[in-house]
Design a protein around this nucleic acid. Sequence first.
DNA 1: TTTACATTTCGGTAGTTAACGAAATGAAAT
DNA 2: ATTTCATTTCGTTAACTACCGAAATGTAAA
Lengths: 114, 114
Amino acid sequence: MKDNTKLFKALSDVNRLRILKALQSKTLCVCEIKELLNLANSTVSQHLKLLKEVGFIIEEKDGKWSNYRINPLPGDARINAVLNSLDFWISDEDMIISDKKKIKALNRTKICSS
Amino acid sequence: MKDNTKLFKALSDVNRLRILKALQSKTLCVCEIKELLNLANSTVSQHLKLLKEVGFIIEEKDGKWSNYRINPLPGDARINAVLNSLDFWISDEDMIISDKKKIKALNRTKICSS
DNA sequence: TTTACATTTCGGTAGTTAACGAAATGAAAT
DNA sequence: ATTTCATTTCGTTAACTACCGAAATGTAAA
């Protein structure tokens, strides 16, 4: 039963929902997501850890970068169901649309070494 | 965006999930649910209030009793989707099965006036 | 091997949530 | 009108969560 609540708990935070939608449009590293959400990267890291644990996303190390992307092969059918119909679950699109614009303008080398 | 997280937050508590499943098998009053979950009825009342606000269940007053049942006509399509496939979302069935047995044995007049 | 830099872990804090018992509310029966 | 009893609201507490900055970790380049 713990499992069920964990899945829903992962989805019950605005910033985690934004991360999921963001990763659906592009693979991103921690500091890019930090820039998008305006959070400390320790906070972003925590959110990513949780989303990874539940199975929504995967991490791919690339040198000193950690790239996160949507889990292409979720073991749990429910994870798949959510990912395949995130737009259905997230009805308030305004923030997501504005995020999408920001994501296009993101420049990793510019943001991440300051 | 608040709306989206509220829906998932409502589903991210074990006792609320148990209530939803219980109401799918039978309309129940507060004190019957209190008996099922072994919680104070003030606590049960709070959970029911939340589930009602989000739109999962409805309340029907009958004298001094408040009967709760699954919302037969949810305005939100997502609520409908969850309700119609709760078994899909709740994969850990053990507790639910044991709840179902308890529900059958519940006797309102016996429990509720002590 | 030292430096540089992205990320993670740690310690702490403020806000939220689930729980309880007690008091307040509301509806029916005496 | 008073009593009875289910339910709700209130006040409180303990546990949890999201957040931050700082310190620790890990990797790659100098």
